[in-house]
Design a protein around this nucleic acid. Structure first.
Lengths: 258, 258
DNA sequence: TTAACATTGTGTACAGTGAACACAATAATT
DNA sequence: AATTATTGTGTTCACTGTACACAATGTTAA
């Protein structure tokens, strides 16, 4: 198989290309059907899933590495990608060891292997918010499958990846308080009820429709379009789009704090 | 010299003990005379200063490494130490290159050296708040001097350490909004005006005395003592101490967000 | 002894924000 | 034209933060 050759090359010579002991893990959040999803990869030979991650090239910025991983796993680029925490416990690799046998990385013919990829890694966590429909999940060489999972109904995860995900969710909820969210999660034109459902999904709680509208409009990052959206036997809501200049300004400066 | 022997050992064999390419930098903030200070080390042979930092042992948690650095440089332990960002630009090492000659790490007899310590480092930033008087700054083996600097009047700093410091200051100010600050910066007993001056110093702006008192007391982390402090020809303010249980609870849970 | 002064302790008034709630407008169906 | 579900807009109220007033107090100077 071609993949196996790539893996072998990575295991034997990867340490020349990449910085050892450092990895980047991306919590890629997609929004669909009022549900918040995380993109996960299934490992080749064991029943565990993991966050899309990667290594940092010897002369590459960590931010760039995170963007590269995102691009390689989703085909999406130029996205809001936020570093949120660095996980540096030496035991993190053993945390969720419910595996009955070791992944290919760590063994060969039943014998435990020692290569640079099986050693301790300090992982820098990033989260991204992507439009679900624009993403075509692609597994990496170590994985057989890549797909979305409901963030509240996750499969068995490797290492401390469950902890990384909750950390990321916490960071996203915090962001919601003082920075805009939605540009990369909604289509170009959207209604206020649609935006509200996104917020409710991220926060896992209901918001008051009227207060939400007032608040969002007062932020000044939305532009009401002359069109409305037909949604059935009810009043048609206005369509809105983000004022990208003001959106990015709010993203940079925040609006929760004086 | 003994130091030179230690340095030589570190340069030649350090990579066996420590994880390469990873460092920890601590922004240690001390408060004194209504001034916020940062602890800096002066490098041995060049006119630059740097943050106290260190490396992560092969089987050591990153958090532990940060605590160890703090302990080694200040003699203080069991402190509130907060990871705030990881700096991973490959060029960060060259950012403030106003050096006319390279530090000893990077050269020997005029020739540029290539050892593990002179390579690229990804640095995990921590900040700590310490009581100024309890600290006895101790230079590490690479430094000749260790002392406090006014955070608003810093000397020439190596690498991107100026950027790390502003990041840290930003993080501390954010913490002030939703977590208590002061337990490690003030003596056991203190007055409300003293606490207020600490807040004003961190935020670099004046606060209203009356509103500040109301706010602080409403948080429920202070205990008024029966004593007062004599401060001169004026009314004597009450002394307070932190209710450590409630303080730590507020530190954990925060109070700015519901 | 007492007046002056700087500083602290406590209280009040007002504006702005978020939360709870009321009602009219509207788009399709009956 | 009536029905129904949903949206757009407005009102009320409690709470928080901000601005400001005044009395209490510890020392110094007259």
């Amino acid at each position: 198989m071609k993949d196996n050759k790539v893996i072998h090359e990575l295991i034997t010579n990867g340490h020349l290309k990449y910085i050892p002991h450092i990895s980047v893990d991306c919590v890629i959040l997609g929004y669909h059907a009022n549900q918040l999803n995380v993109l996960l990869n299934k490992w080749k030979d064991v029943e565990v899933w993991s966050l899309p991650g990667g290594y940092v090239e010897r002369n590459e910025s960590v931010d760039t590495a995170a963007h590269r991983v995102l691009w390689e796993r989703t085909g999406v680029d130029k996205l809001f990608l936020q570093q949120f925490y660095t996980f540096g416990d030496p035991d993190r690799i053993n945390m969720n060891r419910r595996l009955n046998r070791l992944p290919v990385l760590f063994q060969e013919g039943g014998k435990e292997l020692h290569n640079w990829m099986a050693e301790r890694f300090i992982s820098i966590g990033y989260y991204a918010l992507v439009e679900y429909s624009k993403v075509s999940p692609r597994p990496d060489h170590l994985s057989v499958e890549s797909r979305w999972w409901d963030i509240h109904d996750l499969p068995a995860l490797i290492f401390d990846h469950d902890r990384i995900i909750s950390h990321a969710l916490h960071a996203v909820r915090l962001q919601l308080k003082y920075q805009p969210v939605g540009l990369s999660l909604l289509p170009e034109k959207f209604t206020l009820p649609e935006l509200q459902k996104l917020y409710e999904t991220i926060l896992s709680r209901k918001l008051d429709r009227r207060n939400f509208q007032k608040k969002m409009l007062s932020l000044g990052i939305l532009r009401r379009l002359p069109e409305r959206k037909t949604i059935g036997p009810h009043r048609s809501p206005f369509l809105y789009s983000f004022d990208k200049r003001k959106y990015n300004q709010a993203l940079k400066e925040g609006y929760g704090f004086a």
